[in-house]
């Protein structure tokens, strides 16, 4: 690792002040940033630790409204009893990120700010039509996730929380890469008053996206059987040594079926 200066932010205003330094990076759980720094793929001169800011932590379930603080770890999301009762799909998703040690450190805010094209949370937040609350504004997940490792976040802007309304039904299924446990394809489906949304991670060339053919089929009938014979185009899907675009296109349908089964099971 190259030399770095570590700063621990005590508050969001403290973090904002520290962020004025050139090329400074915010550090949450560090499950992506620290490995990248170790291999010198990232070399920020300054890192600003956000995990000691009290207002970024915690989960609130109030009626149908869920708010998860940005510095809440995957393990905390996975095991929160109120959240499990309200929206078990997001707990299930969190319980399958990485491994137990990663889940003890990694956070939801860090994950979405990084927007890895194979990360799990972006699919959930896009399908749940979640609102991302930052230090500057509130924006819909659809506007927040821009592309590969790209979000709408501006310099110095920090994710404070994510907020969503609990849908009537939701489910997530992923085909994990056997080595990394990142999604080779993961599909989150949500069905509520506003209709059906299905978001796909791990498959798109440009990060998380909504699959319209899946949504259209499920809007008619929110059952796995409704997806029989549905196919999604392989255009714009990733091809790599793990899977071709065509294979991933098939996985989108298979994972969508499993997600619906989880949601309706």
């Amino acid at each position: 690792m190259y030399s770095v200066t570590y700063h621990r932010a005590a508050s969001l205003s403290d973090a904002a002040k520290l962020a004025k330094k050139d090329e400074a990076k915010f550090l949450s759980g560090g499950m992506t940033l620290i490995p990248a720094m170790k291999t010198r793929l990232a070399a920020p001169p300054d890192v600003i630790d956000l995990t000691h800011i009290a207002e970024l932590k915690g989960i609130t379930v109030s009626g149908k409204s869920v708010t998860i603080g940005a510095a809440t770890t995957h393990a905390e999301v996975a095991n929160n009893a109120k959240l499990k009762a309200a929206c078990p799909a997001i707990c299930h998703l969190a319980s399958h990120i990485g491994d137990p040690h990663v889940r003890h450190r990694g956070t939801i805010g860090g994950s979405i700010a990084n927007n890895d094209p194979a990360a799990d949370y972006p699919a959930a937040l896009l399908a749940l039509d979640a609102t991302i609350v930052t230090t500057k504004r509130e924006l819909a997940a659809e506007k927040f996730f821009k592309g590969l490792f790209e979000t709408a976040l501006k310099d110095g802007e920090i994710v404070k929380a994510v907020r969503f309304t609990v849908p009537a039904k939701a489910g997530y299924a992923k085909f994990p890469n056997p080595a990394s446990r990142y999604a080779m394809t993961g599909v989150f489906v949500a069905s509520g008053k506003e209709g059906v949304r299905a978001a796909v991670t791990g498959a798109g060339d440009d990060g998380v996206f909504r699959s319209r053919p899946i949504e259209a089929a499920l809007a008619r009938n929110f059952e796995a059987a409704a997806l029989e014979g549905v196919s999604v185009p392989s255009d714009g899907l990733m091809s790599d040594l793990h899977a071709s675009a065509e294979y991933r296109a098939n996985l989108v349908v298979v994972m969508a079926k499993r997600a619906v089964m989880a949601a309706t099971g």
Binding site: G30, M31, I34, D49, A75, R105
Partner: peptide, 19 residues
């Protein structure tokens, strides 16, 4: 490299001592 930090298993190679 797993150790317990505040009672939780973490990878001590993926955390700065300062953290």
């Amino acid at each position: 490299c797993v150790v317990h930090v505040d009672g939780k298993a973490v990878k001590s190679c993926t955390m700065l001592a300062a953290q």
